[in-house]
Amino acid sequence: MNSRKVYVDVEVTHRKDGSARPNTITFEDEGKFEIDRVLQICRAASTKVGGTGIRYTVLISGKQAYLFDEENGRWFVEAKNRGNGN
């Protein structure tokens, strides 16, 4: 398996219309990352690491990534496995 599920701290703006905009994620020991843009929001399953949720396609420092809201208060990302040449 090339990916693993990593739960992250997220700073989110919950708007009064009920929508949400994640602003930053804190990823393990690598610190806090700004989310520059949210490109798409949909319900989706993570085929890479399992589980489902509301999937935010986000742009972080020019790179695209998926951020999943499990709707139980927890958010996760699909992280690459370390130490195997990635």
Partner: peptide, 11 residues
Amino acid sequence: LRATIKFELGL
């Protein structure tokens, strides 16, 4: 429906 269930729920 089949495609949606697969995409959204992974089932």
